Simulated scan of single mutants.
Amino acid sequence: MKFDIKELNLLPTVKKLILLLENHIGSNELEAHKPVNGFTNGFATPEVFKGAKNIRLQGALRQYNSVFDIPPGLYETYADFSGLPGGLSNTGAFIHLRIEVGGGARKQIWLTEGYEGRLWYYTMHTDGSSYNPEGWTYLPRIQEVWAGTAKNAGDIITLNQHMTHFKTIRVWYELDDGISRICQEFESNQSFNLREFDVFNGPAGAILFEIRITRNSHTQLTVTQNKGLDLGTMKDITSNLRIRKIEGVA
Rank of each mutant, 00 (worst) to 15 (best):
I55G: 03
N65R: 12
N65E: 14
L119Q: 12
G26N: 08
P72G: 03
S130W: 05
H24I: 09
L21R: 09
D176Y: 11
T149K: 15
V199W: 07
N54A: 10
L17G: 10
D4E: 09
W136L: 04
T214F: 09
F68S: 15
G178F: 00
V249R: 10
G92T: 05
T13Y: 13
C183N: 12
S180L: 09
Q108F: 03
T13S: 12
I157K: 07
L194I: 07
I207R: 10
W110N: 15
F200G: 01
G128N: 15
T91P: 10
H96Y: 14
S129V: 11
V249N: 05
T233I: 00
G59C: 05
V14F: 14
S217F: 01
E7S: 14
N240Y: 12
S129P: 00
Q143S: 13
T214W: 02
F192H: 05
L11C: 02
I246N: 06
L57I: 10
Y115P: 00
I70S: 04
E144V: 11
Q58A: 11
Y121A: 10
I142M: 04
L21Q: 09
F39L: 09
P203I: 03
N132Q: 12
V36D: 04
S217W: 02
A153H: 01
L139F: 08
Y75P: 01
Y173F: 15
L231W: 03
Q184A: 10
W136N: 08
W120Q: 03
F3Y: 12
S239P: 03
S66W: 09
E7R: 14
K151Q: 13
N23W: 01
I157N: 08
T13D: 12
T13G: 07
Q143P: 00
E187Y: 02
I207L: 02
N28F: 01
V249F: 00
E247L: 11
P35H: 05
L84T: 03
E174K: 14
M163T: 15
E47A: 13
G205Q: 08
T164P: 00
H96V: 00
K235Q: 15
K15I: 09
T13R: 14
I243R: 01
G102V: 03
K15Y: 10
M1G: 14
E185Q: 14
H24W: 02
E22S: 06
Y138F: 15
R118A: 06
R118E: 11
D80T: 15
T224A: 05
M124R: 14
T149Y: 01
G114C: 04
R242K: 15
Y121D: 02
L175K: 15
I182F: 13
G83E: 10
P140N: 05
A204G: 03
R62A: 15
T158L: 06
V199D: 10
E144T: 15
T123I: 10
Y75F: 14
F43P: 00
R141M: 09
I246G: 02
G104C: 02
V14C: 07
G154H: 07
L21Y: 06
V171W: 01
T91A: 06
G51C: 05
